[in-house]
Simulated assay, not measured.
Amino acid sequence: MSTVFMPKTSFQVDKIIFDLDGTLVDSAPDLCAAMNHVLATLDRPSLPLADVRSMVGLGARALIGQGLKATGGIPDGFMIDQPLDLFIRHYRANIARHSQPYAGAHDVLRLLKERGFALGLCTNKPQDLALSLLDALSMRSYFTSITGGDALPFAKPHPMHLDHVRQSLPGRGAAVMIGDSITDAKAARASQMDVILVSFGYSPEPVESLGADLIISDLRALPGLIVKENHR
């Protein structure tokens, strides 16, 4: 278990807000399968898993757009709604066929909850798909607040997405964001929130360049880094 140390090495908070894809769950294999299902109906070539990993993070519509650009472009006047609907239907039917929580995710979430932290989830994944994935992997019960990318008029990196989750969690103390990408880092910074990034996620940019307070290579490092805020 290792960490790459940045300016901050410990966090005193009441609330911990997680990203989902690329942070808690490796969902890229099932997202890739849904993407390639759509591309096949459009007579486009399939994309390798490594390419799709770097496209995850801004929601299904953006993912489809990137997939189309990578396989020939988006024609003028092309309506993305139909392939998006096909993508979502295929993904919903196969949402946890190959997706798995990252090593230690269950144990870490359970331990943090037992220590009294309020846990939230802030994801750009559509709300119903986020809940379905969490249910399929028996992870939903850890979280007091779960907000998907279509649940509000705004989504990460807009700070109000993250602010909504923070405000919906009990307690009056500080919060820290745990994510894997520039989307998470920007949302946290705009919300004046500390951010820890994982090195094993889906960021197309080196995570060292994203301005995190700390980078970790294993979720199991978190309980040793985050302590409960002391209110007097």
Rank of each mutant, 00 (worst) to 15 (best):
S138C: 06
D184L: 01
R140N: 13
M139T: 12
Q100N: 07
S191Q: 10
D150F: 08
F143N: 06
R189L: 07
L214N: 00
Q167C: 14
I88H: 02
N124S: 11
G173C: 05
T123E: 03
M139P: 14
A105M: 08
P206Y: 00
M139C: 11
S181Y: 04
A185F: 02
D213G: 09
D163N: 14
T147N: 02
P159S: 06
H90P: 04
L169H: 05
L121H: 08
A96E: 10
I216A: 10
F143P: 13
H164A: 11
A188P: 13
D163L: 14
Y91H: 12
K186M: 13
G173Q: 05
G120Q: 10
A185N: 07
R189D: 08
H90S: 06
F200W: 04
P204A: 03
T147V: 15
G149N: 07
S209K: 13
P204F: 00
I178C: 02
L119K: 04
L109M: 11
H106W: 04
T144N: 14
F117N: 09
E205R: 13
F117T: 07
K113G: 14
R172L: 11
G211A: 09
H161D: 09
E114V: 00
G116E: 07
R97H: 13
E208K: 10
A118P: 14
P170V: 01
L169V: 06
M160Q: 15
I95C: 14
M193V: 04
Q167Y: 10
F117A: 05
A93N: 15
G116T: 07
F154D: 04
S209R: 13
P170C: 05
G149I: 04
M160S: 15
S138D: 15
K125V: 04
I95D: 03
G148H: 05
V207F: 02
R166S: 14
E114F: 00
N124L: 09
S99A: 15
A212M: 03
L134E: 02
P206T: 01
D135F: 01
M139S: 12
D184H: 03
H106F: 05
M160H: 14
R110G: 11
D150G: 10
I196R: 00
R92V: 09
A96L: 09
A96N: 12
A174K: 15
R110V: 01
R140E: 10
A185Q: 11
C122A: 13
A118H: 13
R172Q: 15
Q192Y: 07
D150T: 11
G104E: 05
P159I: 01
H90A: 05
S141F: 01
S199H: 07
L121E: 09
D194L: 02
F154K: 10
Y142M: 10
L152W: 07
D128T: 13
P101D: 00
H161I: 06
M139E: 04
E208Q: 13
G120V: 09
C122Y: 01
Y142A: 15
A136Y: 01
F154S: 08
